[in-house]
Each structure stands twice: as structure tokens, then as C-alpha cells.
């Protein structure tokens, strides 16, 4: 069975960076524009094929979150300054995103 990981602490580091300390004490910094480009919602990634539908060049470089809210106990919903708000960033995805950076 998959290990369950939660968030111990979440905070705004600076204008462009989100900080998260996970329950395994791993501390991560996320570039918020990268998060917008990696949005997992059905409008940004094709549900059936998994192919990206969002052209990263269309994302404004100064994009930043307006609010971040927990979703259940496994993810977070981020509202962005460009009006996009449909992506649910599961903790699993968030962990995969750091491994890619």
C-alpha cells in the first residue's frame, strides 16, 4: 500500500515561491509559475490520453496564486491571478513535482 504523506506546514516564502514542510520533514520550495504550468485539471491535461493541452507560453510570467485551500486530506486547490482555479494539486503530484525540479 502506498505511503500516506501530509502537510505539516505551508507558507508563502516570497512573491514567487511557496514553501511546504511535509510530514516526513522534507522541506520544499515551489516556483508558483511552474505550478500554474503543471496544472493537472482536465482543461490543461487531456483526461483520456494525459497529453498536455496547455501551452506554457500562454501563462503570464508574473502569474501567482491568490488563495490556496486544502482539498480533503490529500490535495490543495490553487486560485491563480490569471483566473485559472480548476486544478486540484494532490500531495502526490506535489511530491512528484519536486522530484522533477
Amino acid at each position: 500500500m502506498k505511503e500516506y504523506i501530509g502537510i505539516k506546514e505551508i507558507w508563502q516564502v516570497d512573491n514567487k515561491t511557496l514553501g511546504i514542510t511535509w510530514t516526513d520533514d522534507k522541506e520544499c520550495k515551489y516556483d508558483v509559475a511552474m505550478l500554474r504550468k503543471k496544472c493537472p485539471c482536465a482543461a490543461c491535461i487531456d483526461e483520456m490520453t494525459g497529453k498536455p493541452l496547455l501551452d506554457p507560453n500562454t501563462v503570464p510570467s508574473d502569474v501567482k496564486p491568490t488563495t490556496i485551500d486544502s482539498v480533503g486530506r490529500y490535495g490543495m486547490a490553487i486560485k491563480f491571478s490569471d483566473g485559472h482555479s480548476t486544478g486540484i494539486y494532490s500531495y502526490d503530484l506535489m511530491r512528484r513535482l519536486i522530484e522533477n525540479t
Binding site: Y4, I7, Q12, T23, P65, T67, D69, S70
Partner: peptide, 13 residues
């Protein structure tokens, strides 16, 4: 200790 925060809300400044 393992499941972490039950819920959170963060407003970007």
C-alpha cells in the same frame, strides 16, 4: 503526526 494539517487556507500577499 502523519496525516498533518486537517485543513488550511493561505492568502497570497
Amino acid at each position: 503526526k502523519i496525516s498533518g494539517l486537517e485543513s488550511f487556507h493561505l492568502t497570497w500577499k
